[in-house]
């Protein structure tokens, strides 16, 4: 017989762990399926595991390191009785109650059954999908500026993207790199004003507008990238030893295909707070938020999902 839980939480970023703090304090003994280690944002702790300083999480006057903040979230939920399984969910069955959750072999009986399910699987960063990118991953192509910036001391690099994360990475990388070229497909940034001001003021950062990376070149490590100007069509190669990609995210929803409603852009659809189209399944954080996508809004929506789940269980009684 699979273990039965009142609450299972899928995901362990700010949304999932806040839901864990709240449901644990309500004595619901939540099980958090926290994910598996990786070097992408698809890992326990989520996207903040790949960030350096978090400056806008309220209460941390001097800022706090992303991984440290997530460790605190995790410890806080654990203190109230949350339990963790360091695996990814491989399948969910929402057509029956209690819901079935598989964390290993997706055949046979589920590994755990949940009376209420909180989905907080987050979003993962997109890659460019150009030739050479995959092959040179870890050899100059990086998904983690904070991990790998160190290796590009006094070397020229490119950062691809035009949002806040691209500028954060570019600014962080100026600590190491000799020059940072920001390659952006439009001629203006969509990043916040404060990040734009900081980037424009930084002498090490230059901008290549209306441009895209067409390929990554290099034998055993990155030696250059191919650029194309999307307005003039002009192509050129730029000598760099590193490329960091920050072009946006897509929600991790594959697990719920055909079971949970999605918006046209792929994010999970929620109704009245954190409810999904399945009674007893709640969604929070970046998997359902394509607008704000902040650690603090994710945490806030995790709290909403926990309260919604708690009320749902109360109404359910002993069923």
């Amino acid at each position: 017989m699979p273990e039965r839980r009142d609450v299972v939480i899928l995901g362990s970023g700010p949304a999932g762990l806040t839901a864990a703090v709240y449901t644990a304090r309500a004595n619901l003994r939540p099980l958090v399926v926290e994910g598996e280690p990786s070097s992408t944002s698809d890992q326990p702790g989520g996207q903040l595991m790949l960030t350096m300083e978090v400056e806008n999480y309220p209460g941390f006057v001097e800022g706090i390191l992303g991984p440290e903040l997530m460790q605190r979230f995790r410890d806080q939920a654990e203190r109230f009785g949350a339990e963790y399984v360091t695996r990814k969910a491989t399948r969910v069955d929402l057509s029956r109650r209690p819901f079935g959750v598989w964390t290993g072999d997706p055949e046979g009986d589920p590994d755990v059954e949940a009376r209420a399910l909180i989905v907080a699987t987050g979003a993962r960063s997109l890659m460019l999908g150009v030739p050479g990118e995959d092959r040179l991953l870890g050899h100059g192509v990086s998904t983690c500026a904070t991990c790998d910036g160190f290796f590009f001391r006094d070397q020229p690099i490119v950062v691809v993207g035009g949002g806040d994360s691209a500028l954060e990475e570019a600014l962080f990388l100026t600590r190491f790199a000799s020059e940072v070229t920001l390659v952006h497909r439009r001629k203006e940034l969509r990043a916040s004003k404060i990040m734009q001001d900081r980037a424009f003021a930084n002498e090490k950062i230059s901008f290549r507008w209306d441009s895209v990376v067409t390929e990554v070149l290099g034998d055993t490590k990155v030696s250059s990238v191919g650029l194309r100007n999307v307005v003039t069509g002009e192509e050129e190669a730029m000598d760099v030893t590193g490329m960091f990609v920050a072009i946006g995210h897509e929600p991790n929803t594959a697990l719920f295909a055909g079971q949970l409603d999605r918006l046209e852009n792929g994010y999970l659809r929620t109704y009245e707070g954190s409810r999904t189209n399945v009674h007893g399944v709640f969604a929070c954080g970046d998997v359902q938020d394509h607008v704000y996508r902040q650690a603090v809004t994710a945490a806030g929506s995790g709290c909403m999902a926990a309260i919604d789940a708690e009320r749902f269980l109360e109404a359910l009684g002993d069923e």
């Binding site: 280690p37 890992q43 702790g45």
Partner: peptide, 10 residues
Amino acid sequence: AEWCGPCKLI
């Protein structure tokens, strides 16, 4: 290295 989040996880 100390500053690397994924390193802590493994």
